[in-house]
């Protein structure tokens, strides 16, 4: 079954299209990473999926329902982000009790175990938690709720490295035991990559790429070598990324569909091939076409 179906979905704020005519499908019980630069439209897309926003045009369906004003979707989905509204001055354990009464699949045992593992105290209050601690507490709610659709929007903001690794592992373990549809938006793609099945890459409100992680990893190839020899190779090819290493050396990223003749040329001319880290690739695919940061400093 499809968990989410978007068709020509657009969400405008006045004239600005934050989500611009996107069409994609997310299969049930998969973990998808939503990647994109700041302002790419990730949060707007997620909130439209949750039914918080009404689409300006096009359609979104969650478990075959229009999520806007849908009780079925609210009862079966949870959205965890920085701004999750929790009562500030109520003991944390009361908040867990309340969540238990709200979410039908809630697992209280898991919630309490995670609560203890992360050394929260039942009489602590949200207002006294640091940013990272508050996020950690919210992710406990997000995981224990076991909603068929679980969305984490930048869940690791403020968390230290160790807590982030524990969070990823917690999600993976609970997902293996209780499969569900999970979407995680993140800027730490390299940390999360191995836990994901699919990636949805957004740029300027559009879906730039939607593929499995394995496909992404073999999608491109990096080639390093003398500029003159490289130029001949990439003449007729679309170059995804290019960087000067020195005046004579270059690094380019192109599609990984080299012909035998091209491979032979690479071997003969002593060009070196390398794999492209997925996190780097997503950056290359979403970098503005106005050149790199070096151009800001290159006064000519």
């Amino acid at each position: 079954m499809k968990a989410i179906q978007c068709e020509n979905l657009t969400k405008r704020y006045k004239k600005f299209a934050a989500v611009d005519d996107v069409t994609f499908t997310i299969e049930e019980n998969t973990i998808t990473g939503l990647i994109g630069r700041n302002g790419a439209g990730k949060t707007t897309l997620l909130k439209t999926i949750m039914g918080y926003f009404k689409p300006s045009s096009g359609s979104v369906r969650v478990f075959e329902e229009n999520p806007f004003n849908s009780l079925k979707v609210s009862a079966n989905a949870i959205y965890v982000d920085d701004y999750m509204t929790l009562p500030q001055d109520v003991p944390l354990s009361n908040i867990l009790d309340f969540a238990k009464s709200f979410y039908t699949n809630w697992n209280h045992e898991l919630a309490l175990k995670l609560f203890q593992y992360h050394e929260f105290h039942s009489d602590e209050q949200v207002q006294s938690l640091s940013k990272g601690r508050k996020m950690t507490f919210q992710t406990i709610i997000g995981i224990a709720a076991r909603c068929p659709l679980t969305i984490f929007d930048e869940p690791t903001t403020g968390m230290d490295y160790a807590v982030r690794q524990e969070f990823y592992r917690t999600i993976l373990k609970d997902y293996i035991a209780h499969p569900r549809t999970i979407i995680i938006s993140t800027h730490l793609f390299n940390e999360l990559e191995d836990f994901l099945e699919n990636i949805l890459l957004m740029d300027n409100g559009k879906v730039q790429l939607h593929s499995s992680i394995d496909q992404l990893q073999s999608y491109t190839i990096g080639i390093t070598g003398s500029s003159s020899k490289l130029t001949q190779l990439i003449e007729k090819r679309e170059v995804i990324y290019k960087r000067e290493i020195s005046s004579e050396q270059q690094y380019v990223v192109i599609n990984n569909d080299l012909t035998t003749a091209e491979l032979q040329y690479i071997n003969q001319e002593g060009l070196a091939t390398s794999s492209v880290a997925s996190a780097d690739l997503t950056m290359y695919l979403t970098t503005s076409k106005k050149g790199g940061i070096d151009d800001v400093f290159n006064r000519s």
Binding site: Y168, L172, K173, Y175, F195, E197
Partner: peptide, 17 residues
């Protein structure tokens, strides 16, 4: 695939592949 996913800390779909 699930044992491998748990063991290696990776997505079960990757393990299945």
């Amino acid at each position: 695939q699930y044992q491998l996913a748990d063991l290696l800390n990776i997505n079960p779909a990757t393990a299945a592949k």
